[in-house]
């Protein structure tokens, strides 16, 4: 009787684990099925590298290069803001802050993650866009920069959390060794602890990128959704995600516009996938380093 129970539990656990992988594969297959249908009507290179996105015109043009550039610019801007801030915050929390406020600070940053992205988008429209407009004398504050700033807030909790973990996992003995040799606290931190936590820091950056690339609501509200090839962060952009969100409702099932949005989905899936693989590699290396210490 016991053996039967063991057997059932084992199989149930196996099925649950297998189920998650199966779902991902099924989603990807569905994406592929609907997305690849586009390339029966549209040239693949015209899609990937075309600079004109006019999906409901006659004849329609499905060039997504401006959309890719839009996502790239917004993501890049967000990371440039969030990583130094996140690194500084993580170092402060793990190395400098007195024990008593450490927990309080960590909770505070995690609270940022609890803010729904649409609320951040709303704050962006009401406060940030007019502010940027005045500071930079722009026609409108709805720009890639507005998106980057708001997305940096979203990515910050992830980045701080992972970097802080990485720093705390660096064996205390490394820092002691440096201090015993006469390093000051800061010298020990930036010459020994940070390089030792490098893999973890890289993993945090990659996961931050992953978080930002997939963000939809906030960018839809504050980046202006103009499908231009951006040359600076102070211009409006249109991201891959916002395009799908804005146009999916209207695209009639079975039309080439419909397929093109799924094709964008494939592009997003691949980007996310690659980022996550790299993050995994870096996280792995950071764990291997811990194990190396005999």
């Amino acid at each position: 009787m016991k053996n039967l129970f063991e057997f059932i539990v084992e199989k149930a656990i196996f099925l649950s684990g297998a189920a998650s992988i199966i779902f991902v594969v099924l989603i990807f297959i569905f994406l592929l099925k609907e997305g690849l249908a586009l390339f029966g009507e549209v040239n693949f290179f015209a899609f990937l590298f075309g600079q004109n996105w006019y999906p409901i015109s006659d004849p329609p043009q499905f060039g997504i290069l401006p959309l890719i550039m839009g996502s790239v610019f917004v993501t890049f801007g967000a990371i440039v803001i969030a990583v130094p801030l996140g690194l500084a915050a993580a170092i402060y929390i793990s190395e400098v802050a007195p024990h008593s406020i450490r927990g309080f600070l960590k909770s505070g940053i995690e609270l940022l993650a609890a803010i729904p992205s649409i609320v951040l988008g709303f704050i962006g429209i009401i406060f940030l866009a007019p502010l940027l407009k005045n500071i930079f004398h722009l026609g409108s504050g709805l720009t890639a920069l507005a998106g980057s700033i708001m997305l940096a807030f979203m990515a910050l909790p992830t980045i701080v959390s992972i970097i802080e973990d990485a720093i705390v996992s660096v064996p205390r003995s490394y820092k002691e060794g440096a201090l015993a040799l006469g390093a000051t606290h800061w010298q020990a931190i930036y010459r020994v602890t940070i390089p030792a936590a490098a893999s973890g820091i890289l993993a945090a950056v990659m996961l931050g990128i992953g978080r930002v690339v997939g963000e939809t609501m906030a960018v839809l509200m504050i980046t202006g959704n103009a499908a231009i090839m951006p040359t600076s962060l102070l211009q409006p952009v249109r991201t891959l995600t916002a395009t799908v969100a804005a146009e999916m409702g209207e695209a009639v099932s079975g039309s080439s516009h419909y397929y093109s949005l799924f094709a964008i989905g494939i592009v997003l899936f691949i980007i996310s996938f690659i980022i996550n693989i790299f993050a995994d590699i870096f996280l792995h290396r950071s764990k291997a380093m811990k194990r190396r210490k005999k």
């Binding site: 003995s173 040799l181 006469g182 005999k294």
Partner: peptide, 22 residues
């Protein structure tokens, strides 16, 4: 220390660490 704790650097850099700090 009890456990050998080389810094995550090369042999040369480990030894030069202290003098370089100064």
């Amino acid at each position: 220390f009890a456990l050998p704790l080389p810094l995550p650097l090369s042999i040369y850099d480990n030894i030069a660490y202290g003098p370089r700090l100064r």
